[in-house]
Write a protein that binds this DNA or RNA. Structure first.
Length: 196
DNA sequence: TGTCCGATATCCT
DNA sequence: GGATATCGGACAT
């Protein structure tokens, strides 16, 4: 029975559409401390989000939907809040994003860091490529809806990050977007006191 | 701390 | 056909 009660508790903590269908910067900020739960080959992998970045197309030159660009590859960004947007960079690194701000806005949040809950892997996966490696993220999850999926979802487990531990600054690796957009402080992260 | 570069899907020319 | 990418590991400095 313990297992069953756990199931219901987790279920009630799953983040819903109304969490994601809000302004992207707010979602990016509030995702810190939430848990990504991945069910993969009958195993559950989870981690607490420690770093995010906001991408606000079509205005944001760093966003894949800049200028209203709309191809099959970026279609997920035009989806409802909570739709998974993944893509491959540099030929080998999968990037995990969640669509935000509703269907009318092609915006998303990139997950750049998680803290694995597994003790043996208690280190920050400090980089979006590592996040995907840890959570087994790849093209198979494209378009998945985290508000209803059995493969991936998000949970609020009651972790509260003190605002004093939340930092923000420029996004990483978007020099191509030019100095104006590269300077936007749209990256958020949790400043952990131990082990950087 | 800095530089190098792998490996490939996608889009533009 | 060519350029580029929301990176990360390796190794030099």
């Amino acid at each position: 029975m313990k297992g069953l009660s756990n199931f219901y508790r987790e279920s009630s903590r799953r983040l819903k559409r109304n969490f994601f269908d809000r302004p992207t910067l707010q979602v990016a900020r509030e995702l810190l401390g939430k848990f990504i739960v991945r069910s993969y080959r009958r195993r559950v992998i989870a981690g607490m989000i420690t770093e995010t970045e906001a991408y606000k197309g079509p205005k944001d030159r760093a966003s894949h939907t800049f200028g209203g660009r709309r191809t099959a590859a970026v279609e997920a960004m035009y989806g409802e809040g909570g739709v998974v947007y993944v893509y491959l960079v540099y030929g080998m690194h999968w990037q995990l994003n969640f669509s935000t701000a509703g269907k009318e806005k092609p915006e998303a949040v990139l997950i750049r860091g998680v803290l694995p809950e597994t003790k043996s892997q208690r280190r920050i996966t400090d980089g979006p490529g590592k996040v995907s490696k840890y959570l087994k993220i790849n093209r198979a999850l494209y378009g998945e809806d985290v508000t209803s999926s059995k493969n991936i979802w998000l949970e609020d487990r009651g972790v509260v990050i003190p605002s004093s531990q939340i930092k923000k600054g420029p996004r990483i690796g978007i020099h191509y977007a030019g100095p104006y957009w590269a300077a936007k402080p749209w990256r958020f992260w949790v400043e952990l006191t131990s082990s950087r």
